[in-house]
Structure formats: C-alpha cells, structure tokens
Amino acid sequence: PQEEYKKRAKKALKKGDEDTAREALKRAGLSPDQAEEFIRRFL
C-alpha cells in the first residue's frame, strides 16, 4: 500500500539514499514532481 512505500522512502532518506526514496515514491503512485516535493519536505 501507499503508506508502506512512503515509510520506506522516509527510511531511505534518513540514510541519505534519495534514489531508493524516489523509487519507493514512484511505486506509491506519486508523480516525479510529487516525489521531489515529498523529498524536499523531508530533508
């Protein structure tokens, strides 16, 4: 589910792994723009 992928993305970002985070967010159904926004907000 979407929440699970978002959790995964946050874990990846904590490790500084933005590529894995983007992949997880893409799987969560976010557009690339939404994924970038999510990452920017998190960092």
Rank of each mutant, 00 (worst) to 15 (best):
32 P>M: 09
5 Y>I: 04
12 A>Y: 07
10 K>G: 06
19 D>E: 13
34 Q>L: 06
25 L>A: 01
28 A>Y: 05
36 E>S: 07
7 K>R: 12
30 L>D: 00
22 R>I: 05
5 Y>G: 06
22 R>F: 05
4 E>K: 11
8 R>N: 09
20 T>R: 07
40 R>E: 07
25 L>V: 01
1 P>A: 14
34 Q>S: 06
3 E>L: 08
42 F>T: 06
8 R>L: 15
29 G>R: 02
21 A>F: 02
25 L>E: 00
21 A>Y: 02
1 P>Q: 14
20 T>V: 08
8 R>C: 09
5 Y>K: 03
42 F>K: 02
14 K>F: 10
31 S>M: 06
12 A>V: 03
21 A>M: 02
40 R>Y: 10
42 F>I: 08
35 A>S: 07
40 R>Q: 11
11 K>F: 08
32 P>R: 09
15 K>P: 01
28 A>I: 04
30 L>T: 01
31 S>E: 07
36 E>A: 08
19 D>L: 12
2 Q>G: 09
37 E>A: 10
18 E>K: 13
13 L>S: 01
7 K>S: 09
37 E>N: 07
1 P>R: 14
20 T>M: 08
3 E>Q: 08
29 G>H: 04
34 Q>C: 06
29 G>F: 03
38 F>E: 03
13 L>T: 01
26 K>D: 06
12 A>T: 02
32 P>S: 11
3 E>A: 11
22 R>V: 04
29 G>N: 04
40 R>L: 09
28 A>H: 03
38 F>L: 04
13 L>H: 01
26 K>V: 09
2 Q>I: 13
22 R>K: 07
15 K>Q: 14
12 A>M: 05
23 E>N: 07
10 K>V: 15
2 Q>L: 12
30 L>M: 12
1 P>D: 14
11 K>V: 13
24 A>V: 14
36 E>N: 09
11 K>D: 15
18 E>F: 15
20 T>L: 09
29 G>K: 03
10 K>W: 14
23 E>H: 06
30 L>N: 01
8 R>W: 12
33 D>K: 10
10 K>E: 15
30 L>A: 02
43 L>W: 11
33 D>P: 07
38 F>Q: 02
7 K>P: 01
2 Q>F: 11
31 S>D: 08
3 E>H: 10
7 K>A: 13
11 K>H: 13
15 K>G: 10
14 K>W: 12
2 Q>C: 10
38 F>N: 00
20 T>W: 06
30 L>F: 12
40 R>D: 06
26 K>G: 08
18 E>A: 12
6 K>S: 06
15 K>L: 14
28 A>V: 04
12 A>R: 03
5 Y>V: 04
33 D>E: 14
36 E>Q: 07
24 A>Q: 13
17 D>S: 04
12 A>G: 02
33 D>R: 09
24 A>N: 13
8 R>E: 15
25 L>C: 01
40 R>P: 00
25 L>T: 00
9 A>G: 02
23 E>Y: 05
4 E>D: 12
2 Q>M: 13
16 G>F: 04
2 Q>V: 13
41 R>M: 13
19 D>T: 12
18 E>D: 07
35 A>R: 06
22 R>G: 02
1 P>S: 14
36 E>V: 05
13 L>W: 03
31 S>H: 06
31 S>A: 08
37 E>R: 07
39 I>T: 02
16 G>L: 04
10 K>C: 08
30 L>K: 01
22 R>M: 06
4 E>M: 12
35 A>M: 11
43 L>D: 05
19 D>Y: 10
37 E>Y: 06
4 E>R: 10
11 K>A: 15
3 E>N: 10
29 G>V: 00
25 L>G: 00
9 A>P: 02
2 Q>Y: 12
33 D>W: 11
30 L>C: 06
33 D>L: 11
16 G>R: 05
36 E>L: 06
26 K>A: 14
29 G>Q: 04
42 F>Y: 12
26 K>H: 11
43 L>F: 12
3 E>W: 12
22 R>D: 01
38 F>I: 05
34 Q>H: 05
24 A>I: 15
40 R>H: 09
29 G>I: 00
27 R>W: 10
28 A>E: 02
31 S>I: 03
43 L>G: 09
10 K>F: 13
4 E>H: 11
16 G>N: 05
13 L>V: 03
2 Q>D: 10
14 K>M: 15
26 K>W: 09
4 E>C: 08
31 S>F: 04
22 R>L: 06
13 L>F: 02
25 L>S: 00
26 K>L: 13
28 A>T: 04
5 Y>W: 15
18 E>G: 08
6 K>L: 15
39 I>E: 00
27 R>S: 12
7 K>E: 15
13 L>E: 00
35 A>T: 11
34 Q>G: 05
7 K>L: 12
13 L>A: 03
11 K>E: 15
35 A>Q: 08
27 R>Y: 10
39 I>Y: 01
9 A>S: 02
40 R>C: 08
36 E>F: 05
40 R>T: 08
12 A>D: 03
21 A>T: 02
18 E>M: 15
10 K>H: 11
23 E>Q: 08
34 Q>P: 00
8 R>M: 15
30 L>E: 01
10 K>R: 14
7 K>V: 09
9 A>W: 02
22 R>T: 03
28 A>D: 01
4 E>A: 12
35 A>L: 09
16 G>D: 03
14 K>G: 09
5 Y>C: 08
41 R>L: 12
17 D>L: 06
41 R>G: 08
30 L>R: 00
1 P>H: 13
41 R>Y: 11
31 S>P: 06
11 K>R: 14
27 R>N: 12
36 E>H: 05
19 D>M: 13
12 A>L: 07
13 L>R: 01
21 A>E: 00
37 E>D: 10
18 E>C: 06
9 A>R: 01
13 L>P: 01
25 L>N: 00
43 L>A: 09
27 R>V: 08
13 L>G: 01
41 R>S: 12
14 K>Q: 14
9 A>L: 03
43 L>V: 08
31 S>C: 05
2 Q>A: 13
21 A>K: 01
26 K>E: 09
25 L>F: 02
